[in-house]
Each structure stands twice: as C-alpha cells, then as structure tokens.
Nucleic acid binder design. Structure first.
Lengths: 229, 229
DNA sequence: CCACTAAATGAATGCCATTCATTTATACGA
DNA sequence: TCGTATAAATGAATGGCATTCATTTAGTGG
C-alpha cells in the first residue's frame, strides 16, 4: 500500500506495536490457544527463563494484566503448554504394534517431548488430569492398549504411573551435562564409582542418557509383560 | 547470670535480634554448616516457598547480603541442602544383604527422603557430583555393591541412573493429590482409563504411590539382576 | 606496622507475578 | 429499545524476590 492511499491521520505501517487504547476491543485479542502458541514460541526462543508474564504479554502486544482475563496464574499458562505437548506424544503404535513395541515407542516419544520441557515436570506431576484434556486422551489410549494386551484392570494405573515416573526422571538425564559424573579430586577415594564411570566412558556413547533409558525401559517392559494373562 | 552482674550499658538478655553494627565481627557468624542447618529448619517449618534468602538471613540474624560471602547463589544453598540429605539415604544394606534386598532398601530410602524435598530434584538432576561429596559417597557405596554383585563395570552407571530416574519420578508421585486421576466430566469419553482408575480405587490402598513404586522397582531389580555374571 | 583480605551492614537495583481501578464494548433480559 | 451486567482491555500500583555494591570493621601475613 503506497503512502498516498493512507489518510493523513493514519498510523504508520511499521509494526511498532501501536498502543491500543483502554477499554474492551471490538474483537477479542486474546484466547487460550493464542496464549499457548505465544508461550511455546517464547520458550523455543528464550527457554523457560524467558517465559514471563510480561514477556508473554509483550509478544501478544497486550498489557500483562490482560492475560489474567484468560488464565488465573502463570501455572495456568504452564498447564496450557503441557496439555499442548501431551498431544505431541506418539501413541499411534497402540493397536497397531504388539504391546511391547507400542509401549517402547510411546515411552521414547514421551521422554523426547518432555526432555525439552523439564520445567513442566513438577507441574505435571501434581496436575489433576481433569484440567488437561489432551493428557487425558493420551492416558485413555495407553490404558486401552494395556487392557487389550491382557493386563488386570487394577494393575494398569500402577504400571503406567511407574513408567511415567521413569520417563520423567529420564527426561532430566537428557539435559544433564556430559561431565556430571566426573568425581574430580575425589576420584581416588571413590574407586568403584570412578571405575564404573571410566569403563562406561570407554565405550564412547554419544548419548549416555539413551543407554540408561534403554536399559531401564527394557527391564520395566519385560517385568510388566509378566503381568498379562 | 543475674542481672546485677551485667554492666550497665550491656544489651538485654532477650534474644531480640539485637542489631550488629557494620563491619567484620570478631568471630565469624556464618559458615556453610550453619547456613545448611538453618535452611533445613526453614524448609521444615514453611516448606520451600518459605526458603528465601531474606528469610534465611533473618533466621540467622544476619543481613541478606552477608550470605553471599559464603554461597554464590540460592542454588548454591539448595546444593548444600541436597548434599546434606544424600547423607540420610540408607546405603547400609549394601555389603550386608543380598544385592536385590540392598537395592530395594536403598531405593525406598532414597525415594522417601526426596519425596519431602521434590523442589531439589531439578537441581540434583543437573548437578555435577564433584560439588556434592556426600552424594558422591552414596554413589561409591552403591557402585561397589553392584560390582560385588557381579555387574559388568560398564553397565553399573546406566543401571544406577535408570534406578535414580525412576526414584526421582516416583518421589513426585508421593506428593500428588489423591484425586489426580479423577477424569471428571470426561469419564464417559475415557472408558478404559476410567475403568482402570476405578478398579484400582476399589482395592482401597491408602498409599497408591507405593503400589506403583513396588511394581516398578520389582521390575527394574529383576530385569537388572539378569545382567549379573 | 601496614596492606590485604574476610565478613559483616545497609541501601539500592531490576525483575517478577499479581491486583485493582478504570475504560470501553458487547450481550442479554425486561 | 433501553439499560444493566459482563467481558476484555489499559495503566498504575504493590510487595516480594535474588542479587550487587559501596562501606565499615576486624583479623592476618609479609
């Protein structure tokens, strides 16, 4: 649009976050979906430290207080993000693959998604599923997979919870620094530990967290498989 | 000490946090051990929300900035607390009981300690062991237990990491609200999940987290036991 | 003895989530 | 159709937070 077509009093084209005047706008600026998307974009760019209510508001070209018409707290924003991510977890193997394989693929996918979002884990862990429909949908698919695989109904939730606990803990491992197990100057006083660390290092895995995850996941799957009838 | 023995200008006996004047005191007021103890007391009384640098300073009758002569950050305080707790984890079964039993007792103790301190978990997970001598000592005892039980050296660390991941995830479960799995008004659309939740509830366990922990721990122990030679 | 360093105070800084009064626009019920 | 309740925005607080810095005082090593 050439400048000549603009009325004289009109705001300039540059997307300089022209300030909205006070009062309810004709059409709503915010909704939960938009807040969720903006939060995710912010997290991707600046990490969870960059996710502040002020930054979120700014990225939506809105005053911070406006957010509170749509969410009750920052934890509420984290909950929205969490539920969005739950939909990204791959449960498609259930009903397509044998139970062992389905669990394996679900678990890897679940871990990979939340390894990028560990600050959500303390929130999820205490989160009533009622408030997270996508998360609930994931549980439903997984529960059905366990039921169809012949699990006694009362064992299904404990088995899923145990797997989830392992998955969340393992998500932290992914982000741990490579030298986390370097005993430093205590090496001589911790021979067994130091020896174990060194013999593992000698294998030269590029993703040590994956070794532990594979090991634990295999144990859980074969242990739980024995419960089926 | 009777009042009459006190000089006239002396401060009153009441522990009313008489203000110290600026400048280095004759004998040091703070040290890491004292800071750790005060932090733990504060956490016990008011939880982790109550652990602020200001509150910590006040409980030590000191200005907040004085803390920074002994720790570099609040995370540093959390690290001190973590390492103190690591010493409370019971590793005494290693060398006394058979491997399976020793792992079981260590895992329960580890989970129970950190279930009361879940805000530390994100810190521990990324923590280089160099900075935490008590934690390192725990690893040494456990590693020696695995080695003596016939584990291949390069499998020891992955096995411990997998167990630890499960333990940390399970620590969160302990603190979860009882109704965390209530599907609410989505119940009709999540029949498998709802059925699983109900059939577990029918058993009436008073500590549901313990059911999942037992199940997962048994699977991990029997799975890992197969690695021994 | 003197300079350096250690360990405290006290005052600031900047950021943060959240609240509240106010403004404006829409939706619904009489 | 009016007019009141409600929804959704602004803008200005508020109080708490971790952390920093200048300053003061006391011990310590050359």
């Amino acid at each position: 649009m050439p400048a000549s077509t603009r009325a004289s009093g009109e705001a300039p084209l540059r997307a300089v976050a022209e300030r909205r005047r006070a009062g309810r706008p004709s059409s709503a600026v915010l909704d939960k979906a938009g807040i969720t998307a903006a939060a995710l974009k912010l997290i991707e760019k600046n990490g969870y430290d960059g996710l502040t209510m002020a930054a979120l508001a700014r990225s939506l070209n809105v005053a911070p207080s406006a957010l509170y018409n749509h969410v009750t707290s920052k934890d509420d924003v984290l909950l929205l993000v969490e539920d969005h991510l739950a939909a990204l977890v791959d449960v498609s193997s259930f009903g397509r693959e044998p139970w062992e394989e389905a669990v394996r693929q679900w678990a890897w996918s679940y871990r990979d998604v939340f390894a990028q979002h560990t600050p959500l884990i303390p929130v999820i862990a205490v989160l009533p599923v009622t408030d997270a429909p996508q998360t609930l949908a994931m549980y439903e698919t997984v529960s059905a997979g366990f039921r169809n695989a012949g699990f006694p109904p009362e064992q299904i939730i404990p088995a899923i919870v145990a797997l989830e606990s392992f998955i969340f803990g393992s998500a932290y491992d992914v982000t741990a620094p490579a030298d986390i197990f370097d005993p430093g100057d205590m090496a001589s006083r911790t021979p067994s530990f130091t020896g174990a660390v060194e013999s593992l290092a000698r294998l030269g895995h590029d993703k040590p967290a994956d070794v532990a995850f594979t090991l634990g996941l295999d144990a859980l799957i074969s242990g739980f498989g024995a419960l089926r009838s």
